[in-house]
Design a protein around this nucleic acid. Structure first.
Length: 357
DNA sequence: CAGACGTGGCC
DNA sequence: TGGCCAAGTCT
């Protein structure tokens, strides 16, 4: 970092003056309540601002304080998170609320070192809460910060490598405004989502254009450097649509892994079958639900749903049955009219649209 | 470190 | 339409 003390001071002044005038008015910027900051930051992980807004409002209405969240039934928390994705965030957020109320007696830890010990809070979120809620001079290095500083300094390090964080952390600690660290971090995020966005940026009109080495070098789009992600792996499944006069059979997914604790039709991974025939699927289904049902292929339509790292290809198998006991494997008969009482992932809603009506 | 872990918007 | 991206963390 080759900036003089004067240049650093000028950068802070310019950035914060712009933020004071043009910073976004967001629901979670109304106050600096640490619980509000935590909820918003967890929701914003890998998630767009516009997506988060309605969830944030509903969530705070339903769980107004950390203590209220700590005491809530987990199923309600998951239901409030339905559709946001990365559902372990919901479980970890509630655990963090419990840690604060129980282990810390309701007194918030105020340093990044302490905050990072809370469930679901990593270096970014710890820095965000510490700086925004507690005025600590801690960097909050998210995708925006990586992009903004990579461009400002033409940093060639690959930001997908964990070791690269250290480079940015060291740099930002020298730049962050010690008087307004929270505003500094949020100003960087606003810059990163406007003039210095990933696609179609407008670096020339950025308030910090004079400090932008990538602009001077006409290399804005060369930064940040990141290696490409691998394409999702295709995973074929049978989705079992089994109905009785008691409703449809849904199962609660395991506590860990994909769509943890969410409710879905029972799934059979076709690569787990020895033969992948209809008879094999029926036998596996019978073992899974402790009851023989006569499954038939419901047409040839395949429902596709793509996650970050997997593409599910779901073939529907349907059966009508007289209601049998499903409690021993965590199943539940649910009338279609009552689906909205349970937390359902988007892929399950997609299956419902195709399979029912 | 590499891979798991969701979703909606965009072109 | 399929691929890529967006305020990361955990194992």
């Amino acid at each position: 970092m080759d900036w003089s003390a004067d240049k650093i001071e000028a950068f802070r002044k310019t950035l914060l003056a712009w933020y004071d005038q043009e910073g976004r008015a967001l629901p979670w910027r109304v106050d600096h309540d640490p619980y509000h900051v935590m909820v918003s930051e967890i929701m914003l992980q890998q998630t767009q601002v516009e997506t988060v807004k309605p969830y944030y409002a509903r969530f705070l209405k339903q769980f107004p304080t950390a203590a209220a969240l700590a005491d809530a039934p987990e199923a309600l928390v998951l239901k409030a998170w339905e559709g946001l994705g990365y559902y372990s965030r919901a479980r970890n957020l509630q655990r963090a609320a419990q840690q604060i109320t129980q282990e810390h007696g309701g007194v918030w830890p105020q340093t990044a070192d302490e905050l990072v010990k809370l469930a679901g809070i990593g270096p970014y979120t710890a820095g965000a809460i510490a700086s925004i809620a507690f005025n600590q001079p801690e960097p909050a290095i998210d995708g925006n910060a990586f992009r903004v500083f990579a461009r400002l300094f033409c940093i060639e390090d690959d930001i997908t490598l964990p070791k690269t964080r250290r480079v940015f952390d060291t740099l930002i600690r020298q730049l962050i405004d010690p008087d307004r660290p929270g505003d500094f971090n949020q100003a960087i995020m606003d810059l990163g989502s406007t003039y210095m966005r990933a696609k179609d940026p407008d670096a020339a009109h950025s308030p910090v254009a004079a400090f932008d080495a990538s602009l001077a070098a006409n290399r804005v789009l060369d930064f940040p450097v990141k290696t490409k992600k691998k394409p999702p792996v295709v995973v074929p499944y049978y989705a079992l649509v089994i109905y009785s006069d008691q409703g449809y059979l849904l199962v609660k997914r395991p506590k860990t892994g994909m769509l943890a604790n969410m409710w879905m039709f029972p799934l059979i991974k076709r690569t787990d079958l020895t033969a992948d025939t209809l008879d094999d699927a029926r036998a596996t289904a019978a073992k899974m639900i402790g009851h023989a049902v006569y499954l038939t292929a419901a047409g040839t339509q395949v429902v596709k749903h793509t996650f970050t790292h997997q593409q599910w290809q779901l073939t529907l198998l349907t059966a009508e049955a007289s209601a049998f006991d499903v409690t021993d494997f965590g199943g539940r008969w649910v009338q279609a009219a009552n689906f909205d009482e349970l937390a359902l992932p988007t892929v399950q809603k997609k299956l419902i649209r195709v399979a029912i009506k």
